[in-house]
């Protein structure tokens, strides 16, 4: 498949020989108002679902409904409805999480616990009935909205993330979270994004071009991969930088200036 040869996959380490990523990875996608990073999420979802018919995706949607993702992934060549029927995709529509109550603070804790319970139950009963070791990917499309639902109590959100992380410790499993970097840029102190950058193994930052908007370069990606183990067995951090252009059925990645 040609989509295994692009720069993003390379930076993520997808096309290493084994093609099975190291266990328990946390991938953090950061974006800003000017440049949305959701296409990386779509890409990772497609990748997880196309992984030799064994990967399982649990998608916690806080930003967009299922129909939105269904249309996008269909254009990318992945049928979410079929995957859902095959018990490979579990979609949790959480658009109304924490919405319908007057004072959220306390109740949201219960709601997050309930959501976690659902995820855990799904993994134990539906997804892996026979204790097979299929890689699980938990994706959360906009964690900043969970913070909103929790009325700013980032501790609840962090707890939730930690619980989810414990579910994805197996080989090939990962936790993919999208957040917005610019929300926190004016804050000091331990913000949610700092905590997440700390636990993340891979940070993908989607940024606008410094030179402004262009129609053939939509922005640049910076991929920081902290968990690379080289030949000598030492742990290294690898940083990659490249430009991208988003299309309906694919995303082009290229090094700055190399686009003809």
């Amino acid at each position: 498949m040609d989509n295994h040869s692009n720069l993003l996959d390379e930076a993520l380490g997808f096309n290493s020989k084994a093609r099975v990523s190291p266990s328990g990875r946390v991938v953090l996608i950061e974006d800003s108002v000017e440049t949305s990073g959701s296409f990386v999420l779509h890409h990772l979802m497609k990748h997880a679902l196309s992984l030799n018919c064994s990967g399982i995706v649990l998608f916690v949607a806080l930003a967009q409904p299922f129909s939105h993702y269904d249309r996008i992934l269909r254009k990318l060549g992945c049928n979410l409805v079929a995957q859902r029927d095959n018990n490979r995709l579990f979609f949790f529509d959480m658009l109304k999480l924490g919405c319908l109550d007057g004072d959220g603070g306390k109740i949201i804790e219960g709601q997050l616990l309930e959501l976690y319970g659902k995820i855990q139950k799904t993994i134990e009963t539906d997804a892996l009935p026979d204790q097979s070791k299929n890689p699980i990917t938990i994706m959360i499309d906009d964690i900043s909205l969970m913070e909103v639902a929790a009325h700013g109590s980032s501790n609840h959100v962090l707890d939730f993330l930690h619980y989810c992380h414990t579910l994805t410790l197996g080989p090939g499993c990962s936790l993919v979270v999208l957040n917005h970097e610019d929300i926190y840029s004016s804050l000091t102190g331990p913000t949610l994004i700092l905590e997440m950058e700390y636990i993340a193994d891979i940070v993908i930052k989607a940024e606008p071009l410094a030179t402004g908007l262009a129609s053939d370069v939509h922005g640049q990606l910076m991929v920081v991969n902290k968990g690379i183990i080289d030949e000598n067995g030492t742990l290294r951090t690898k940083l990659r930088n490249f430009h991208f252009k988003v299309k309906e059925n694919s995303v082009e990645y290229f090094y700055p200036g190399s686009q003809s």
């Binding site: 108002v33 000017e34 440049t35 949305s36 959701s38 296409f39 779509h42 129909s67 939105h68 249309r71 996008i72 254009k75 908007l213 262009a214 129609s215 939509h218 988003v246 299309k247 309906e248």
Partner: peptide, 18 residues
Amino acid sequence: VHKVASINTQVPVILEAS
């Protein structure tokens, strides 16, 4: 114009002038 709605698509709308 800072952002144009991109519903059901992942392609951002890039205006020639904003």
